[in-house]
Amino acid sequence: MDVFTSLVNAHKNAPPRMKLIDIFMVFLVLSGVVQFIFCLLVGNFPFNAFLGGFSATVGQFVLLAALRTQVNPENKEEFRKVSPERAFCDFVFGSLVLHFIVYHFIN
């Protein structure tokens, strides 16, 4: 439980951009859980739509996590070649690719 409270504290003290990222990530997790529960309850027809929707949440979540890590100044040593601006551009590019693929998949 201490873990949980310390995580929430960390979030409260974060700079605004981080908060934004965190909010988006939480929203994605909720959306994914909702879709998964729906699939369990109602059945997985049509399977490609379920996969598409669910993977969209997972993929976006992962991209956001990547963005979060890359933007954190603490990790500057790890990401020598990737400036925060570059990280954001990469994020946009990855997200566009993801949306395009999922759109094709759902149909």
């Binding site: 879709q35 729906f38 109602v42 027809f45 739509a49 929707g53 669910f54 949440t57 759902i106």
Partner: peptide, 17 residues
């Protein structure tokens, strides 16, 4: 997909994202 009611949930998930 848009004609199958089941998939509206997933479609809405995608559009919200």
């Amino acid at each position: 997909s848009w004609t199958i009611t089941n998939s509206w949930v997933y479609l809405s998930g995608l559009t919200t994202i």
